[in-house]
Design a binder for these strands. Sequence first.
DNA 1: AATAAATTTATAATGATTACAAATTTATAA
DNA 2: TTATAAATTTGTAATCATTATAAATTTATT
Lengths: 151, 151
Amino acid sequence: MKASDYSNEQLDQRMRSAGLRPSSARIHVLRYLEKNRNHPTADRIYKALRPDLPSLSRASVYNSLAALERSGLVRPLTLDGCELRYDAFVEDHGHFRCERCGAIHDFPLAHSEAADLCPDGFLARRKDVLVWGLCPSCLEESAESANEKQS
Amino acid sequence: MKASDYSNEQLDQRMRSAGLRPSSARIHVLRYLEKNRNHPTADRIYKALRPDLPSLSRASVYNSLAALERSGLVRPLTLDGCELRYDAFVEDHGHFRCERCGAIHDFPLAHSEAADLCPDGFLARRKDVLVWGLCPSCLEESAESANEKQS
DNA sequence: AATAAATTTATAATGATTACAAATTTATAA
DNA sequence: TTATAAATTTGTAATCATTATAAATTTATT
């Protein structure tokens, strides 16, 4: 993504073509999500924007996220129990959460998988795939510690 | 599942072999989840058990669910934003939510899909797949109403 | 610049979940 | 069985995320 894509004019245009009034709060929230692809919560976004926008209210962040979601510019996801996170990457993709280090990795869903990921006779519009397990570096570490025990 | 599987002795045994102390609250919660495969929330379970167990507290339902989850006897899932649901069917499977009628359908994950559902180099331990869309009967209805408009 | 409509703000309310300490239940050993 | 220690349950208060609300502000339109 080019730097110019974060300009107000660019975001303004994208919101207009999505049928959304480009208010100040919405622009800031969307720009934050474009720059921070780490699935932040509403509260994290609020706290991050606050220093530069002292008048921003928590409710505006929630309102903006709801509006952006309705227009398809961002999508919600749940990683832990009961807290919504948001993602400006709206194409279908999977999320991998490492049980050891907690890191989240995005991964693509191959077309065949995505198509099959739904029983016959059902029409799939959107998919959320969340996989828990061990990421490569944690796998390596646990292999090493197993070796140490052996030798 | 046989009727005998709901007996206290059976549930008692399953909990013991999972390394869990078979307390009264846990037995009732697990039996409810075995019988009601509709992904109930903690509050739904609490309200359903209350009439027969007037002394049951909401906190015990939460505690029991947490203990059952730790032992792998039930698994949590999120269907709507911010409310945990529980499932006594712990094998990997997908959930389909109809955007029109709201019904939830469980569907199996084919082995190949399940195996591929994770990038190379990662070790998958558990998967959650949630698909939104239209179920067969709602698809049919929307096709009918489209026909009416045409004719 | 004036007006109407939509959005934001600040705050209160709600809903789900967790924390906590006292009371009870469960497991273990005498 | 009874005594004891450990774990669990209860009831309540506290917390955390989110939604509701009404007044103030901003945005789009005339």
